[in-house]
């Protein structure tokens, strides 16, 4: 049985109109009917609060509030309608440090540009079928970065060390 994508509400955030058109064309062909668009992080926040989407597809690099800042706000702002909403990030950044940065902001999945139909479907299926557990610590709230669960992690507490170093500066 295939997915009933027509039941989904998806928010597409990108300040580039062509990229929004590409993404919405793909989503509409998948059967998604309720697609909300925003051309900035600030506008996206307003739309998010009005429409409470099921999934957000967000560009990283935007003027004003970036995709990372928007994601972080979804996860941590008291006014957020749903701190668990899956965020799929569109990005031209593929360096491991940048991927880590996005993970730390609470991104669930990535799509490296150029956007392809198959990748878009794979990421949608991933947030539906393989949701990550969520983690709350003193310095982070968001999807667990380890698919097998944080309880298995035995390494150093990188985020806490970073926060402590920043606090000491």
């Amino acid at each position: 049985m295939s997915y009933q994508f027509d039941r989904l509400k998806i928010l597409v955030v990108d300040d580039n109109a062509h990229m929004r058109k590409l993404v919405t064309t793909i989503l509409q062909a998948f059967g998604v009917i309720q697609i909300y668009e925003a051309d900035s992080g600030e506008r996206a926040w307003a739309v998010l609060r009005e429409s409470n989407p099921d999934v957000c597809v967000v560009d990283w690099m935007m003027d004003g509030m970036s995709g990372l800042e928007f994601t972080n706000k979804i996860r941590t702002a008291p006014q957020t309608p749903n701190p668990f909403v899956p965020v799929i990030m569109l990005t031209g950044h593929t360096h491991i440090d940048q991927v880590r940065q996005a993970r730390d902001a609470g991104v669930n999945e990535f799509i490296a540009k150029p956007v392809s139909v198959k990748t878009m479907m794979q990421r949608l299926v991933s947030v539906i079928e393989s949701p990550r557990p969520y983690v709350r610590t003193q310095v982070y709230f968001g999807p667990c970065r380890r698919r097998r669960g944080a309880e298995e992690y035995r390494g150093p507490e990188r985020r806490e060390k970073k926060a402590a170093a920043e606090a000491a500066e």
């Binding site: 062909a29 949701p131 709350r136």
Partner: peptide, 30 residues
């Protein structure tokens, strides 16, 4: 740390059986 799994509202909403996998029909349409 607090680790928890929120209810999978997306799966409940879109269905798709045990694991529908990639919807090849939708991919072709797109």
């Amino acid at each position: 740390i607090e680790l928890f799994m929120p209810p999978n509202m997306l799966k409940a909403k879109v269905g798709g059986g045990v694991f529908a996998g990639l919807d090849m029909g939708a991919i072709r349409r797109a």
